[in-house]
Amino acid sequence: MAMCWEMPGRPRGQLLRRAPGRPGQWAFVVPGPEQREPPAEDRLVLQWVAKASRPLVDLHDPALARDVLESLRRKLDGGEAAV
């Protein structure tokens, strides 16, 4: 989330976290022949993420890099994540 710009149409947090890791893993793995199309809800989430994602070169900004690292350090409930 820390690498996405605030843009209109942002999906709910739970949906944003779930869509890339759902069965079929549409964002990271080419699906098998039985799963050619992602569910419509996932497709919309992944389209929004593609538009809202910042380029990796933005991590050269120390403030953004710290924000990203801090977001990775925290669990959803605000507690410390495991090392």
Score class of each variant (00 low, 15 high):
residue 1 M to A: 15
residue 1 M to N: 09
residue 2 A to R: 03
residue 5 W to V: 12
residue 6 E to C: 09
residue 6 E to N: 09
residue 7 M to D: 07
residue 7 M to N: 05
residue 8 P to W: 14
residue 10 R to M: 14
residue 10 R to H: 06
residue 11 P to L: 13
residue 11 P to R: 12
residue 13 G to Y: 00
residue 13 G to A: 14
residue 14 Q to D: 08
residue 15 L to N: 00
residue 15 L to M: 08
residue 17 R to W: 00
residue 17 R to Y: 00
residue 17 R to G: 15
residue 18 R to Q: 09
residue 19 A to W: 00
residue 19 A to V: 06
residue 19 A to E: 03
residue 20 P to H: 04
residue 21 G to W: 00
residue 21 G to S: 13
residue 21 G to N: 04
residue 22 R to L: 14
residue 22 R to F: 11
residue 22 R to Y: 12
residue 22 R to T: 12
residue 24 G to P: 03
residue 26 W to R: 02
residue 26 W to V: 07
residue 26 W to Y: 09
residue 27 A to L: 08
residue 28 F to W: 14
residue 28 F to H: 14
residue 29 V to C: 04
residue 30 V to A: 06
residue 31 P to K: 03
residue 31 P to T: 07
residue 32 G to D: 08
residue 33 P to A: 06
residue 33 P to Q: 05
residue 34 E to M: 15
residue 35 Q to K: 07
residue 36 R to Q: 07
residue 38 P to M: 10
residue 40 A to P: 09
residue 40 A to Q: 07
residue 42 D to P: 02
residue 42 D to V: 15
residue 43 R to L: 15
residue 45 V to N: 00
residue 46 L to Y: 02
residue 49 V to Q: 04
residue 50 A to H: 08
residue 51 K to L: 15
residue 51 K to I: 15
residue 52 A to H: 06
residue 52 A to T: 09
residue 53 S to D: 01
residue 55 P to G: 01
residue 57 V to D: 01
residue 59 L to D: 03
residue 59 L to Y: 00
residue 61 D to A: 05
residue 63 A to V: 08
residue 64 L to D: 01
residue 65 A to I: 07
residue 65 A to W: 03
residue 65 A to D: 03
residue 67 D to W: 10
residue 68 V to M: 05
residue 68 V to F: 10
residue 68 V to R: 01
residue 69 L to E: 10
residue 70 E to K: 07
residue 71 S to W: 04
residue 71 S to E: 11
residue 72 L to N: 07
residue 73 R to N: 14
residue 73 R to W: 12
residue 75 K to Y: 03
residue 76 L to P: 13
residue 79 G to C: 08
residue 81 A to G: 11
residue 81 A to V: 03
residue 81 A to E: 08
